[in-house]
Computed example of a mutant assay.
Amino acid sequence: MILEPFPPALPYDFVFKLARDSHDLEGYHKLRREIFCEEQHVFETDDRDLFDESAMPIVCKSLIAGMEDTVVGVVRIDERSSGLWYGSRLGVSSGFRRLRHISPGVAVRNLQPCYAALGALGAGLIYKAVSTACALGCHEFLATVQQQNARFFQRLHWQPLENIMLHGLPHVLMRADLNHYAAAKKVA
């Protein structure tokens, strides 16, 4: 009898939060390099830019037995003028992009809805980004989204504004419909 190897077990519990300590920030930058430099080849060795100086980094971390483990998703937000916020560098670790099962506790713990059918972690990061900005006085939230991801954002109540080229790739400038994003009850 031949035994097939089991697929790796994936956690199904997560926390979305601002990256504040050195461990979270290290995981945040490491995952950004993996996605935007090594996987997508958008940048050569590092994707940091001048927006990183003022941006608020947000991470999604897996939870194992209730304890924070690995950074599996990232996004950053920054205010470019009074009330005008931008989100950028959204990414989810490749092993977690098609995740369809998440703990019901994720919505309760993070005080935000969960969208398991829509790409749970990416949608959760988007919600955390916009709701955090709303709690900090956002009146308009924009993002430049890689063209292949624009439909995903539209399903999450974003409107396309214009097609642009950014870093040599087609992107879409999009605006979040803030009526669908409640201000975060806590900014953490």
Rank of each mutant, 00 (worst) to 15 (best):
A184Y: 09
P8Y: 05
A182G: 09
A65S: 15
L136V: 01
V106Q: 01
T144D: 13
Y115I: 03
A116G: 05
A117N: 10
V130H: 02
L173E: 03
L125S: 00
V187H: 13
D78Y: 11
L50P: 07
L173P: 03
G124M: 10
S131R: 02
E26Y: 15
A184P: 07
A116D: 10
P11I: 00
K186L: 08
F43Q: 03
Y181A: 06
L18H: 05
P5W: 04
S88W: 01
S103Q: 01
F14V: 06
K30W: 05
R109L: 15
E34W: 04
Q159F: 06
L99N: 02
C134G: 04
D46T: 07
C138R: 03
D21L: 10
G91P: 10
R100E: 12
Q148H: 15
D24H: 12
W85F: 02
K128T: 11
V145W: 06
A183E: 00
L136S: 10
P170N: 11
L3M: 13
D21R: 12
H167P: 01
A183R: 00
M56C: 06
K61G: 06
C37A: 02
Y28Q: 04
I102C: 13
R175F: 01
I2T: 10
L31F: 09
L84S: 13
V15T: 15
L50Q: 11
E4H: 14
W85V: 04
A9F: 12
E38D: 14
H101R: 12
A117T: 11
A183Q: 00
F96H: 08
V106F: 02
F96P: 05
V59Y: 00
V42E: 13
G137R: 04
F153H: 14
E34P: 01
D13Q: 08
M174W: 03
T45P: 04
Y115N: 05
S82T: 14
